[in-house]
C-alpha cells in the first residue's frame, strides 16, 4: 500500500489557500455592490448619454439656459455649475449609489446613476 490517506499535508495547504481565496473574491467582486458604475445624462430631448464613473473628468453640457458643468471624481458625479436660479442641482451634491438622481429642471439636464443592481425601477415625486 502506497498511500492510504485521503489528504496529504500539501493537499490541506491547497484547501486552506482556496478557502482564503474565496472570501477575497467575494469582497473584491461583490463588495459595495450598490456603487454605481455609469451615469446616464439626459439633456432636453436628446438621446441619453452614458458616461463611466471610473475616470475623473469634467463635462460641459449645453441646455436651453446655457452650460452646466458636471464633474466625475472617484466614482461619484455632481453638478458643479449650472445657469439656473435656485441651484437645486448643485446642492444635490455628489451622487454615487445606484439610481441616485439629480436634475437641473430649468436647464433640462438630469443625471441618473446606473449600477449593476438597480434598487428602483422608477421614482415619482
Amino acid at each position: 500500500m502506497i498511500r492510504t490517506k485521503i489528504l496529504t499535508s500539501a493537499d490541506i495547504i491547497v484547501i486552506c489557500a482556496a478557502l482564503v481565496l474565496l472570501p477575497w473574491l467575494y469582497s473584491h467582486f461583490w463588495g459595495d455592490g450598490s456603487q454605481g458604475e455609469t451615469a446616464r445624462i439626459q439633456v432636453a430631448d436628446q438621446t441619453p448619454m452614458i458616461i463611466p464613473l471610473q475616470h475623473s473628468q469634467r463635462y460641459t453640457f449645453d441646455g436651453p439656459l446655457g452650460s452646466s458643468i458636471i464633474e466625475v471624481q472617484d466614482g461619484r458625479i455632481r453638478f458643479v455649475e449650472s445657469p439656473c436660479r435656485n441651484q437645486l442641482c448643485v446642492h444635490s451634491g455628489w451622487l454615487q449609489n445606484d439610481a441616485e438622481f439629480a436634475a437641473c429642471l430649468p436647464n433640462l439636464i438630469s443625471i441618473t446613476i446606473a449600477g449593476r443592481n438597480p434598487r428602483f425601477d422608477s421614482i415619482n415625486f
Partner: peptide, 16 residues
C-alpha cells in the same frame, strides 16, 4: 517535501 500533493490538491488546482 513529504508526500506532496494528492488527488485532492491536484483536483482543486485543476478546478480553479
Amino acid at each position: 517535501p513529504g508526500q506532496g500533493l494528492g488527488a485532492v490538491g491536484f483536483s482543486i488546482l485543476a478546478a480553479l
